[in-house]
Simulated scan of single mutants.
Amino acid sequence: MIRIKAGSPRGPRPDVHSRGRWGSAVARGVRHGSRRGPRRLRRALAVGLPTVWGATAITYKLACPLAEQHTIGARVVGSAAFLAAGAGLLLHVRHAYLRELRQARKVAGAAQSVLLRPLPPWIDGLRVAAAQVSADRGAVVGGDLYEVIATEHGVRVVIGDVRGHGLTALATAAAVLGSFREAAHDESELAPLLRRLDRALARHLRERVRAEHPSSGREPDSPVVEEFVTLLLLEIGREGELRALNCGHPWPYLLQRGRAVPLSRSEPLPPLGPFPLPDDLPATDCGRLPPGQALFLHTDGAEDARDPHGGFFPLSTALARAVSDDVVPQSVLRTVFADLLHHTGARFTDDVALLVLRNDRRGGAPAGAWGTSRQATTDPRPTKHR
């Protein structure tokens, strides 16, 4: 159905195409003009201020009669003039570098928020708290990864550590996390889920090699032998039952009031990347997570942190002290990070990621009672202080 707008002029129809081209061109010009003004001003200041300072110093040296005198007063004035010009130039350069650094940190923070999305405080009856720190001073991105997703198969958790730091490790972590966020809903068991993560990692490494060496034109057999990812897959069932697949990652701790014990002592599989997965991948049965108890997941940067004398961080002791009164996820994170900072003198040699999951379900009620969405962030019970 054609609907005619009331009050439209009758007669020959204007040239819609030309009007659209001119209208869009004018709109683009207005937008670009509004953006070009501050950019042109910044460029003019970036070039003009050093030029003015340099021209002032040269003019003083060549044209000022005082610069030709050799008295002490003339030398002091000349030195002060050149010092002022040099200081102004250094301050200008410093300001420009700080502006670029702020922009880079803003971009890095946006990338980090997309990769490691902030976890909600509640996921399917579990109280959640997470924290991460990069080993690179002043950086906000690292090679650690974690995610918690509520699915129809239970709450699926992944935590891992990519070898290395920086943008390369960030890209590898993004490939693994992207695959997990999709496969966690599709696969009913942990074994096929782990295989999909392994294939995603291998595909990412092959594409990286082709991008780094495009002239070879061949499919690499072992794209990056030295690259690997330690990974722990954990599933929390509807009644609190725990199943896990561990590929070279530290086992979590089970937190009770006054106690912190390893969840399992079984030998993990090799890390993802260097070796193919075995044909048989049975998940490790880790018992149950009763209501009121919690799991503490971490990367090896926490256990391997050293003091100035080379001593390792006593993680189990710090956890036992953190749950001496009650198991509160945020309190556990604050205590462990405070002890880490004190132990290392705030000098981390590796990325650290910590994740605490406390079972706050009512008497082990089915997980589906509060939905199966990662975005289910509200607690259905009356709030109370713990």
Rank of each mutant, 00 (worst) to 15 (best):
H213R: 15
H342R: 13
R3A: 14
F275T: 13
K61A: 11
P329Y: 01
Q375Y: 13
R238H: 14
A44Q: 11
Q256Y: 09
P9M: 04
V229T: 10
R210C: 12
R13K: 11
G138W: 08
E267F: 03
G258L: 05
R306M: 14
A184F: 05
R35H: 02
R181T: 03
Y60G: 04
G301W: 00
E226M: 08
A27C: 10
Y253P: 02
G142Q: 02
V225I: 10
A260Y: 02
I58Y: 08
G301I: 01
L234K: 07
P214I: 11
R358Q: 10
S18R: 14
Q112W: 04
A150T: 01
G363I: 01
L177K: 03
V76I: 15
V52H: 10
V229S: 07
S316I: 04
P38V: 03
R362Y: 11
L45E: 09
L319K: 04
M1K: 04
A175H: 00
A283P: 05
L177F: 03
A46C: 09
R94K: 10
Y97N: 13
S188L: 02
E227H: 10
R206M: 07
V77A: 15
G143K: 00
A87Q: 09
E189A: 14
R288P: 03
A57Q: 02
G86C: 13
C286Y: 04
V225N: 10
A283S: 14
L281M: 06
A44T: 09
R105L: 14
A211R: 13
T59W: 10
V114Q: 15
I159L: 14
R358G: 03
L233C: 10
A46H: 05
Y253D: 01
T383K: 07
A84R: 08
G160T: 04
A191M: 07
L297F: 04
F312K: 11
P274V: 12
P250N: 05
L115K: 05
A96D: 11
G125I: 08
I58A: 15
L89K: 01
H385Q: 09
G86Q: 05
G23E: 03
L126A: 06
V148R: 01
K106S: 15
L177P: 00
H92C: 12
R362P: 03
P308R: 11
V141M: 14
G178N: 06
G160F: 03
A27W: 07
T56Y: 02
